[in-house]
């Protein structure tokens, strides 16, 4: 039996299962949840930024503008680029007013 991990998003209280080698964002999308915003899914746009409150994970490459080294040290990561190695508690970043097409 494959070991799976439970990911708990604190703001929404939602949780979902993530398989080893699967990104947290992809697992969430597969289970039809929307508790973390989905953007490029490639570590480039920063939309899926979360803070990991507890648990172990591996990171893929992430854009340095969105995750500078000091943020990474505080557990800030991009959900599309983290691969859990244990159950995780994560928390969405407060949504900043992102770009509007208005003057």
């Amino acid at each position: 039996m494959v070991q799976t991990f439970r990911i708990c998003e604190q703001h929404s209280g939602r949780s979902f299962i993530c398989e080893p080698g699967q990104s947290v964002l992809k697992a969430m999308e597969q289970q039809g949840l929307r508790c973390v915003p989905v953007g490029c899914r490639g570590g480039g746009c920063g939309l899926c930024k979360v803070r990991v409150l507890a648990g172990d994970y591996e990171c893929g490459k992430m854009s340095r503008v969105h995750i500078p080294p000091d943020a990474l040290a505080k557990g800030e990561v991009l959900a599309c680029r983290i691969y859990p190695q244990s159950d995780l508690a994560i928390e969405c970043q407060p949504q900043q007013a992102v770009g509007q097409v208005t003057k």
Partner: peptide, 9 residues
């Protein structure tokens, strides 16, 4: 879609 305005690199 929300992404058109917000997802950029």
């Amino acid at each position: 879609n929300e992404r058109f305005l917000t997802v950029l690199t």
